[in-house]
Design a protein around this nucleic acid. Structure first.
Lengths: 204, 204
DNA sequence: ACTTAAAGCGGAGGTGCCTCCGTTTATTAC
DNA sequence: GTAATAAACGGAGGCACCTCCGCTTTAAGT
């Protein structure tokens, strides 16, 4: 029970998978991500296997339980979200990068809302998963906030944890139909506040 | 989702079941209790129906989800444990009654240990269940402790919540093979402590 | 190029979940 | 007692889970 945690990279380092196995595994994760998004976290594993064009046995070999699969999908998505921070920072003025990233953050949370119960269980059961991913997210946010503070496009008297704190309402807000719009407005509002009194407003 | 709570007695008061229905329902609860004890909380519902001599449809009509059934079984067992307090008090000197009741409490917890995870989920999901049952248990304990204090078979400077606190180690102790013996010893130890300095040691 | 062992594949099959609905049974009214 | 009717029964059937093992593919050795 204690070792239910997945040691993904450790396994990858110790034993490179055979080419076909790696192919199937990647495909499964990719398909699983879209099926979970579409049908919810309780989607049929057989459907995932079918859509991925592999047998159900193959799915179970790679991911012995549903939770294993969900965990890998979840990690991959957090990773993608955080990786976007770097790209956005490279392509946009730093305040715009921050804003766009927060917008994506809202979208990301949106897809997770329906799954709340099951995901919460997974996250409380597997605390490594929680600390890994939340650490990763706040790191990405810090990078963006610090860059924007540094070049003066947002005010200097705030830091990443202030912003994270401000965003926390996005989590806790009830799951109403207006949630998404409300959250978008929250991001705009927050950005206006951050830009106000900045030493050097965006010149773009 | 909010009304997942079962209104057992309310339903019973508003609509007496047809005789055969009541019979089947009782039989199902009884059988379920022993199957859960034997095979764990994930036991097959079809097996329960089979052993109870009813169709699976009947089981589902009475208990639309596994949780409903588990809840009723659980409540019934707590009820039985607490009802035993009164009987023990009537048949034994009050310190002996207390000791015996705690012994049964240990046995009761023992059967729940294996189910810990699922039960914990049920208890945290359904907080009414938790408060009802824990209230009931501490009430039973209070009755026994107060009687024993009153007639001087245990010391007077403790109350029920002290004893409950002392028993709490039984819950939290890890699930080792020695758990049961250790818990029995805890009860004995506790009783010795309670009897020490009592005004009027048991005369039986 | 060929062999071979290890790695991986896949789906049949056994089991459990849950729903649906035609049949049976208890109860009420006469 | 009998008829009418509402309540309850039960199990077939459809779907999903997961295991097991005979077959296929890869890749390492020659």
């Amino acid at each position: 029970m204690a070792e239910a945690v997945i040691a993904e990279d450790a396994a990858a380092e110790t034993k490179p998978l055979r080419a076909d196995a790696q192919r199937n595994r990647d495909r499964l994760v990719e398909v699983a991500a879209s099926v979970f998004a579409e049908r919810g976290i309780d989607a049929s594993l057989e459907e995932i296997a079918r859509r991925a064009g592999v047998g159900i046995g193959t799915l179970y070999r790679h991911f012995p339980t549903r939770e294993h699969l969900v965990e890998v999908v979840y990690r991959r998505e957090v990773e993608a979200l955080c990786a976007a921070a770097g790209e956005l920072a490279a392509r946009h003025p730093s305040d715009v990068a921050l804003e766009e990233w927060m917008r994506r953050f809202v979208d990301y949370i949106a897809t997770k809302r329906g799954l709340a119960t099951s995901l919460r269980i997974l996250l409380t059961t597997n605390s490594t998963l929680f600390s890994d991913t939340s650490g990763r997210v706040s790191q990405a946010l810090r990078q963006l906030v610090e860059a924007a503070v540094a070049d003066g496009t947002i005010r200097g008297d705030v830091d990443a944890s202030d912003v994270l704190h401000a965003l926390s309402g996005i989590y806790s807000a009830p799951d109403t139909p207006e949630w998404r719009d409300r959250s978008r407005r929250l991001v705009k509002l927050l950005m206006d506040g951050l830009r106000f009194g900045a030493g050097n407003p965006a010149k773009a």
